[in-house]
């Protein structure tokens, strides 16, 4: 028995070591970016245009571009994603079509992000003649984020007790009325969580926007959907790999803004989720 205990201690120790090997770098990454990027943050950095070939000034246009992309892609993807989840959770029968849909969602979630970029280029930029523009990039990002929205919304709908649906039906409500009045209100926080998670995801993606919207440098802010735009993740890529002589603090500052945005979105989603969990 003693020997077994010893073996167990060694085993658990190894598991702990592996876990630390995963977790410590994560903390190190966050600490490093915050420590080195904090100094770069200033009013000027956040809210002014870049100067001197992006070696000075700020990242304002990249922030604006990312906000544009996030919201327009969400306006497109959220209704489709939520309705798709409603279909799967409330309407779909257990048949071949449903299996095909589920398979499609899994594949949409698994396709390489750069392939989405190619698709956006081929469909929106070239075929539909939208050009390299905010609308092309936002639609590409929107399609990419659909699986996130669909799966989180579907989970939220499935967690609504079946008895609510029964009661609603028994009171003469139609299926849509039941969904609208008895099911959806209960699933709102879950849907919100999915939307916020997808916002974080969209904000950080680079590959899908490379050929559909992203601009290296623009002297003006975008004025409409058919304009190109700068975007935070692409900007970070550009100043890291394409332009020599950029102050390191600029790079860390940009990374901090990006990661800060993404993490804040995730924290908000987690808080909403845990609040909703407690209510139940």
């Amino acid at each position: 028995m003693k020997r077994e205990d010893k073996r167990q201690n060694i085993g658990f120790g190894a598991l702990l070591a592996a876990t630390l090997l995963v977790v410590i770098p994560v903390l190190a990454i966050v600490v490093l970016i915050v420590a080195k990027g904090w100094g770069a943050l200033s009013w000027e950095f956040l809210f002014s245009m870049p100067r001197d070939g992006m070696r000075a000034g700020g990242i304002f246009p990249a922030i604006v571009g990312t906000i544009y992309l996030v919201f327009i892609s969400l306006i497109f993807a959220l209704p489709i994603g939520v309705m798709a989840a409603i279909y799967l959770s409330e309407y779909a029968k257990d048949n071949a079509l449903t299996r095909v849909i589920n398979l499609a969602i899994i594949n949409l979630a698994g396709v390489s992000s750069v392939v989405f970029g190619l698709f956006g280029l081929s469909l929106f930029v070239v075929f539909l003649k939208f050009g390299v523009s905010i609308i092309s990039g936002a639609l590409t990002l929107g399609i990419m984020t659909l699986p996130v929205i669909i799966t989180t919304t579907r989970e939220a709908l499935r967690s609504v007790p079946a008895s609510y649906r029964e009661v609603s039906f028994s009171l003469g409500a139609s299926r849509w009325q039941t969904v609208r009045h008895a099911v959806l209100p209960r699933a709102l926080s879950g849907i919100l969580t999915g939307a916020i998670l997808s916002v974080g995801r969209v904000a950080g993606e680079t590959a899908p926007i490379l050929f559909t919207v992203a601009a290296f440098y623009l002297p003006n802010l975008p004025t409409g959907l058919s304009d190109q735009a700068m975007a935070l993740p692409y900007h970070l890529y550009v100043i890291t790999t394409q332009i020599p002589g950029i102050p390191e603090s600029f790079r860390y500052g940009t990374a901090l803004v990006l990661i800060g945005f993404v993490l804040v979105m995730n924290i908000i989603a987690t808080v909403i989720r845990s609040k909703a969990g407690k209510k139940r």
Partner: peptide, 8 residues
């Protein structure tokens, strides 16, 4: 129903 289920 057997179990009372008031809607929320």
């Amino acid at each position: 129903f057997a179990m009372p289920v008031p809607l929320p």
